[in-house]
Design a binder for these strands. Structure first.
Lengths: 102, 102
DNA sequence: CTTTCTTGCTACATATTGTGTAGCGCACTT
DNA sequence: AAGTGCGCTACACAATATGTAGCAAGAAAG
């Protein structure tokens, strides 16, 4: 799903490529609070197929955003810094949805 | 590509669904500075196929995030508020990529 | 009026990606 | 030895994206 463009070299492009893949944002979001096992994570993500879940987790691990510990999958330190940004997205989404209703 | 879950009702889920689709984040990103015509936008997005581009633009228009004006496609007011958040993402991505090199 | 641009966008065959179900191999517990 | 939960794989099927060609409409120029 990622495109293999020259621009992908640029950090923001690499990030947009990564986050733009189906389920990636959702997975990061679901891991925001507590570590989750593979199976628990599946349930949180509407029973996403294990094939894709594993594919995405591999990507995220390679990207250094997620790691598998004894407690389950959890975001790494850098990924946790992404948290506040996602919360802003969440806040923004609320006003966006309200505006939509008009 | 969006999942049709009950949770999708929640604003953040709707947003993650939307942004998690291929090209959506990229399109918003490319429109951040100036309006772009359909064709110009295509070029910026690595010659994305017009089929998908149109599909995504329709989604974004329905979502009230993008509109087509005489100057081309451009983000709506609410979408512009998304800009700063994306810039934070961009900043974060730089330190992330630096950390990755170790 | 007609030719020539450029616009947004569609058609469609092909390739890529995701889905859903079943189940394997491993480490524990009982 | 039998059961449980784990991460994860296999694979047939369905959904989605790609890439190329080109249409219809509008503006500009001859």
């Amino acid at each position: 799903m990622p495109n293999n463009n020259k621009k992908t070299q640029r950090p923001i492009m690499a990030l947009l490529d990564l986050l733009g893949q189906k389920w990636v944002l959702r997975i990061i979001w679901e891991l925001r609070d507590a570590p989750l096992t593979f199976r628990a994570l599946r349930e949180r993500c509407d029973q996403i197929s294990p094939t894709v879940l594993n594919q995405r987790l591999s990507l995220l691990r390679d990207a250094g955003l997620v790691e598998l510990t004894d407690d389950g999958y959890q975001p790494t330190r850098p990924c946790q810094e992404l948290g506040p940004i996602l919360m802003q997205l969440s806040d923004w989404s609320k006003t966006w949805q309200n505006a939509r209703k008009d």
